[in-house]
Simulated assay, not measured.
Amino acid sequence: MDRFIIISGCSGGGKSTLLGELRRRGYSTVEEPGRRIVADELASAGNALPWTDMAAFARRAMALALQDRDDAIRSKGFVFFDRSLIDASVALAHVTGEDALTPLQTMHRYHRLVFLTPPWPEIYTADAERRHGFDAAIDEYHRLSATYPALHYDVMVLPKISVEARADFLLDCLSIEGVAT
């Protein structure tokens, strides 16, 4: 869908902060499925956690990302997603070898321009919901930066600049694409 914009990339690269800035500017945003799942699983002593059962976590993230897409249809204008169904599918394929990506070449499409946050060690932090290290975040970034083009998305790597300037850059890229903001 042309109004569904993915912001993906390196864990700890500033995606959630950028989504907060876009939300402050009045745009519809969708929080990262993974963080919501981890919070739910920790609260309920569940096992669908990336450090306990990554396959279950990824499957749950895929289901939640599909629900997020369905819910976003009712929104007007751009909807910015912190990660996507593709991110969850990449994670599942990585840990199980399952081909969760082939159907995404034609189904459940997003806007063709995807924004990636690059590895940024100066702002990366681990926390209760992000327990993996920076090296694992970089590996994930490389998988995502290879997969999006393979699925016929154009990738724009976001510059390492202030959140306000990043939001301006992203919105400028979309206006250049001929999509009204």
Rank of each mutant, 00 (worst) to 15 (best):
H94Y: 15
T102L: 02
L85K: 00
A91H: 10
A88G: 06
H94F: 10
L113T: 15
R112A: 12
A93M: 12
S84L: 06
E122A: 14
H111G: 12
V90W: 03
H111M: 12
P121V: 09
L116C: 11
S84G: 10
M107H: 13
L92F: 05
T102N: 00
P118L: 12
L104E: 03
D87S: 12
T125Q: 15
T117D: 00
P119I: 05
H111P: 08
V90F: 02
R112G: 14
P121T: 08
V95K: 06
F115T: 09
R109F: 13
W120C: 01
H108R: 06
I123D: 02
L116T: 05
E98D: 15
T96E: 10
R112L: 12
D99F: 05
V95P: 02
L92Q: 05
H108F: 14
L116A: 09
P118K: 06
P121A: 14
I86M: 11
S84T: 07
A91G: 06
G97S: 13
H94N: 14
V90L: 05
T106N: 10
D87L: 10
L116S: 03
H111K: 11
M107V: 08
D87C: 06
T102P: 00
T125W: 00
L85I: 09
D87V: 04
L101Y: 00
R109Y: 12
E98K: 04
T117P: 01
L92V: 09
T117L: 05
V95R: 03
S89D: 03
I123N: 00
R109A: 11
V114F: 08
D87G: 11
P118T: 12
L85M: 08
T106M: 11
Y124K: 05
Y124N: 05
T102S: 15
I123H: 00
V90N: 05
Q105M: 13
V114A: 14
L85W: 03
P121S: 12
A93R: 11
D99N: 15
Q105A: 15
L116V: 04
V90M: 05
Q105W: 03
L104T: 02
A100Q: 09
Q105L: 14
W120R: 02
T102G: 01
Y124P: 02
P119S: 06
L116E: 06
L101W: 03
I123S: 01
E122T: 08
E98T: 15
T106Q: 13
A91N: 11
A93E: 13
L85C: 02
D87E: 14
R83F: 03
V90I: 15
L116H: 09
S89G: 11
I86L: 07
S89E: 03
A91Q: 11
A91T: 10
A93F: 02
H108C: 12
F115R: 10
A93G: 13
V90T: 07
Q105S: 13
L113N: 09
T117G: 04
T117S: 15
T102K: 02
Q105H: 14
A100L: 04
Q105R: 15
E98L: 04
I86N: 04
I123Y: 00
T96G: 07
M107Y: 08
L85S: 00
Y124D: 00
T102I: 03
I86A: 01
H94D: 15
R112T: 13
D99A: 10
P121D: 09
M107N: 10
P103H: 03
Q105I: 06
L116I: 06
L85D: 03
L116K: 08
Y110P: 04
P103I: 01
D99H: 13
A93W: 07
I86F: 03
G97N: 11
V95Q: 06
M107F: 10
E122H: 08
S84Q: 11
